[in-house]
């Protein structure tokens, strides 16, 4: 036998549009804008130069996914699907995998998670006011909502006229996990990725300690943390309505909509954070819990997922 060992060498080009600093705790923080918000990568590396490369690797991945899957990106596949005017669109491997995944999530949530429910935003504007939509306008949109109306025959997708899809409910988490995969393949383990609040820790810090992640208080967003979560190697994601809600007659209407009624899920928590093996898992579990309304806590308990709920 000949058990030869192959030298693993990977080459990646050099980076831009990133700011770097060294935090008090000694790690490097790389910041950039992507996926519609601030993103950061925390790394335990001694030098900024080394870190720049790895932060860029994560940034490139975030921007690649944004360009491909954001519904605002005119060159992206979601844009192409939403503007196909009832014609079938052939998807590549990655887009098809995301749709398959969305379909699985639709099934696992008994139809509550639905990537076609974005159409309802035409009726709903969650601006903290008391301006509820006209119930008739909501009802009028319902025929354009529902994954069961979509013709998904991998790799071909045909959306009935008037329907749209939005992968915003999974895109950011997906980007976090893919960026983590890139860093991991580049040999990095002491790092934490945070794309707009969706987090994945690739491994403990260089000193063996966990990364500490604070969970934002939705009642004082940006100013206070309700809890510090230690992460060694796992994902953490939060679903919540920090500023996106309506309030009328003492009743709060969160931005999580039930695709079957077109109305917000009643009695849902203000914020659900879940820790799971991947960021996508964490994000989906948090979303599913939100969609369960008052049963959010029970659901997460039954699933055995470590969670933090704020009512």
């Amino acid at each position: 036998m000949q058990a030869h060992v192959k030298q693993r060498v990977s080459y990646t080009p050099e980076p831009q549009n990133i700011t770097l600093r060294i935090a008090r705790e000694g790690h490097v923080v790389g910041e950039f804008q992507a996926l519609g918000g601030p993103c950061e990568v925390l790394l335990d590396l001694p030098g900024l130069d080394d870190a720049r490369h790895f932060v860029a690797l994560a940034a490139d991945e975030a921007r690649r996914i944004e360009a491909k899957f954001s519904r605002y990106s005119a060159s992206g596949v979601v844009h192409r699907i939403n503007n196909a005017k009832g014609r079938p669109v052939t998807l590549d491997e990655e887009a098809a995998a995301l749709l398959d995944f969305a379909q699985t999530c639709h099934r696992l949530s008994d139809g509550a998670f639905d990537i076609t429910s974005g159409v309802l935003r035409r009726a709903w504007t969650f601006d903290g006011s008391d301006r509820l939509p006209d119930p008739a306008a909501v009802t009028a949109l319902l025929p354009h909502v529902g994954w069961h109306r979509v013709n998904w025959n991998r790799p071909e997708l045909r959306l009935p006229l008037g329907m749209q899809i939005d992968l915003g409910g999974v895109g950011k988490e997906y980007a976090v996990d893919q960026a983590a995969r890139q860093l991991s393949a580049a040999g990095i383990s002491a790092a934490l990725i945070n794309f707009g609040g969706d987090v994945f820790a690739l491994g403990p810090r260089a000193n063996g300690e966990p990364w500490m992640v604070g969970i934002d208080d939705p009642r004082a967003t940006g100013q206070a943390c309700v809890r510090a979560v230690p992460l060694y190697r796992s994902g953490l994601a939060t679903s919540g309505d920090a500023r996106r809600f309506l309030q009328k007659d003492g009743e709060r209407y969160g931005h999580i909509l039930n695709p079957k009624t077109g109305w917000p899920v009643r009695g849902a928590p203000r914020s659900v954070s879940v820790k799971a093996d991947s960021c996508v898992d964490a994000g989906m579990l948090a979303t599913f819990a939100m969609l369960k309304g008052p049963d959010a806590e029970n659901f997460l308990k039954t699933e055995g997922a470590e969670h933090f709920i704020i009512w």
Binding site: A23, E25, N194, G196, G197, V199, M212, V213, G214, I215, D216, D217, P218, T221, G222, A224, C225, V226, R227, A228, T238, G240, A242, S271, S273, E297, L300, K301, G304, A305, E306, H307, F308, I309, I310
Partner: peptide, 17 residues
Amino acid sequence: MQLTKQAKKGQAKKGQT
């Protein structure tokens, strides 16, 4: 949601694992 590196004790309920 926003993340910061410091945390205060809060009233969040922690679920069982």
